[in-house]
Amino acid sequence: MSAITLRVNGKPIALDVDPSTPLLWVLRDHLGMTGTKYGCGIAECGACTVHVNGEAVRSCQLPIEYVAGAEVVTIEGLSENGDHVLQKLWVEMNVPQCGYCQTGILMATAAMLAHVKKPTDKDIDTYITNICRCGTYPRVRAAIHRATDTPGT
């Protein structure tokens, strides 16, 4: 096995790992970064969303060999001190309930905002397709509108 190299939250990483291992499990079990969650393993729920070269990606279906050389950002790297505008609003507006899906939703939302500065409800529906069993969707939507100073429904 040859080492796979990539950057995670700005740090260079070299790994001796089965190249078919999904990025999710590399992050969680090899690198100890458990903020990226396992929910379904088939890229349905989005709890495992991270940024790969700036794009939101569901890491549970992404073999580590495909991200060799890539720049990966996880929830641990979204901000220095947990003070990204979305993180602050998620707290202030009491968005999470159990919270398990929220790191994935935050990463999906942050990636959306890199593309769409002023998202409409339709944009939000298109970009944020994560599953939240607690039903926090209306609060997620409200927090995005507040973060971007856009009108909600």
């Binding site: 970064m33 458990t34 903020g35 990226t36 996880t74 929830i75 641990e76 947990g82 979305l86 993180q87 998620w90 707290v91 202030e92 009491n94 968005v95 999470p96 919270g99 929220q102 790191t103 935050l106």
Partner: peptide, 12 residues
């Protein structure tokens, strides 16, 4: 604000 939320949104 619920007091576990800072830990939740940081992934910690």
């Amino acid at each position: 604000a619920k007091l576990n939320l800072p830990e939740i949104v940081r992934g910690s």
